[in-house]
């Protein structure tokens, strides 16, 4: 079925468009370019290109900037002290922030549902790493709660991807985004709540504790990546 589908879509498109057949979706527009890796064909559209530039910018900021040093003032006196971040922690957090940025860019470019879920899980685990590096009981408690959420979030993600494959026979977004293929609501819901758990974008309940952690801009990478990947999954779910 998918072969016929690809063929029919390609036939209706100009030949110069692409070999995979795309896909004028409602919110993202025509694919700008495609990057094939075997069965997985990554692509960027005007919408995802904007997200990609955002992710790239913040990764570069994480790469070149020095961490902030929080200042605590002592109540009732002139004394103040700056929190020192050890070299080891700094290097580790910077590595994790860059890995997180790369994972975000991968997730934004993903042209395959399962590949997208893997990149999302990758973002989840780098986020845990960034937060867990801070040596503070409250923040570690939070990192643990987040980690649990990221771990159980893999269930909706993978079950969602498996359902997409089971009901349509393909994982490629190039085919899933065509109007001929219908993805059940259940699979879409699973993907969205999976990303919520991994990316943690709308779950701001426990964020207060984490923003208190020293180590910006690396800590900020947690927020940026989760926001961008959430925007991306909404786009995928609407287009499917």
């Amino acid at each position: 079925m998918y072969e016929a589908m690809t063929a029919s879509v390609t036939a209706s498109m100009p030949v110069s468009e692409s070999a995979y057949g795309f896909t004028q979706t409602d919110i993202e527009g025509q694919a700008l370019f495609s990057l094939p890796f075997g069965d997985i064909v990554n692509f960027l559209t005007p919408y995802t290109a904007v997200l990609f530039v955002f992710a790239l910018t913040f990764t570069i900021i994480a790469l070149i900037s020095k961490p902030e040093r929080q200042v605590d003032t002592v109540m009732g006196g002139d004394a103040y002290y700056t929190k020192d971040i050890s070299r080891e922690t700094l290097r580790f957090q910077r590595f994790m922030a860059i890995a997180c940025g790369l994972a975000t860019m991968g997730g934004i470019m993903a042209g395959d549902v399962f590949n997208f879920t893997l990149f999302t899980a990758f973002i989840g685990i780098t986020n845990i790493g960034i937060v867990a590096a801070v040596k503070n009981k409250h923040i570690l408690d939070n990192a643990f709660e987040y980690g649990l959420l990221a771990m159980i979030g893999t269930l909706p993600l993978f079950v969602g991807a498996a359902l997409v494959l089971a009901t349509t026979g393909t994982l490629s977004m190039w085919i899933l985004f065509t109007p001929e293929v219908a993805v059940p609501l259940f699979a879409k819901l699973l993907l969205v709540i999976g990303v919520i758990a991994e990316g943690m974008a709308p779950v701001f309940v426990a964020k207060a504790e984490i923003t208190r952690a020293p180590g910006a801009p690396y800590i900020l990478m947690v927020h940026v990546s989760s926001l961008l990947i959430f925007l991306r999954v909404i786009e995928i779910v609407i287009s499917m």
Binding site: F37, D39, A103, N115, L118
Partner: peptide, 25 residues
Amino acid sequence: YATRGLDTIVETSILFVAFTTAMFL
């Protein structure tokens, strides 16, 4: 390795990052 090799790249990277976190702590 080949047709869905990118999945394996991401997967081994996840393992790598998780172990880095565990060993750092």
